[in-house]
Write a protein that binds this DNA or RNA. Structure first.
Lengths: 144, 144
DNA sequence: CCCGTGGTGGGAGATAGTGGTAAACTATGA
DNA sequence: TCATAGTTTACCACTATCTCCCACCACGGG
């Protein structure tokens, strides 16, 4: 279970250390891809394979499916964790998520999200402001 | 699995390097053909054979099937990868996809798509704008 | 206070992408 | 049939970037 929040730096060589707490669970091979709200998703290879298997079942031929495939698949890269626990973030993904050097890694269930620090704090502020409203919803569906 | 996005140049001799990451998977002989949305598709020869086999089973009586065949098959060219990992892009395909020198190679499942850089960025912007549609798809396949 | 661990930074060698030159092949006309 | 011009193919060369490895520093625990 990936939980918690860490702030790390992407260095000039596009290297990003993963929090040591997650390394065992994430494994040596990961997939980074475009996520929603302009962040990046990191999946362990196992999880990714499940996803692509399901993507394969989508009806091709439809324009919006093609669009989705392009967004999700061309936006994905398989990366290897180096000897000291870092991955390389390709330029086009850095650009997509508008990452500068300070970056937040957020654990969400079975994936990790990468956010630029500024965008993250801003996003959090917005969410926290709606916390009680969210709690009410969660109550409705029986989570809390 | 072909994934990721790379920007390369087509030189004056119409040569285009393939990303080194894909070379093993693509093999030495490829097929380039007209794709959908005004880009080009590249298939490894193996994949292409599967596709033509499937196309062959389509009912020839229908006018739109004939049209699709002509579009897809007459535009196909078999190319060889040279010693440093490049292919030659024929003029008529360059023209079809309006390729200038800067070109994007996008890995989608089992094929590679070639886009002119400008058209690609424009297309991506459009797709990213459809965040709710994307979220819905992601929900369908169980990512979110 | 020392040691182990985690995050960060840098340097040397290897490699990928690109451009150019030489050779070979094709076509055309005398 | 031969010569020449134009095009294509094969080979070589350069440079920016990436990879791999090692070193450093900060921090926390014993």
């Amino acid at each position: 279970m990936l939980i918690g929040e860490y702030t790390h730096n992407i260095d000039v060589k596009k290297r990003l250390s993963l929090p040591s707490k997650w390394r065992k669970e994430l494994g040596k091979k990961l997939v980074v891809t475009r996520g929603l709200d302009n962040c990046l998703f990191i999946y362990p290879l196992k999880e990714w394979e499940k996803i692509t298997e399901r993507i394969g079942r989508l009806p091709l031929g439809q324009a919006d499916t093609r669009g989705f495939n392009r967004f999700f698949l061309s936006g994905a890269v398989e990366v290897e964790v180096d000897t000291v626990g870092r991955i390389l973030v390709p330029d086009f993904l850095k650009e997509f998520a508008r990452l500068t050097t300070k970056v937040v890694l957020a654990g969400i269930h079975d994936r990790v999200e990468i956010w630029d620090e500024n965008r993250w704090t801003e996003y959090k502020k917005r969410i926290e402001g709606q916390a009680d409203a969210l709690a009410e919803k969660l109550g409705e569906i029986g989570v809390l």
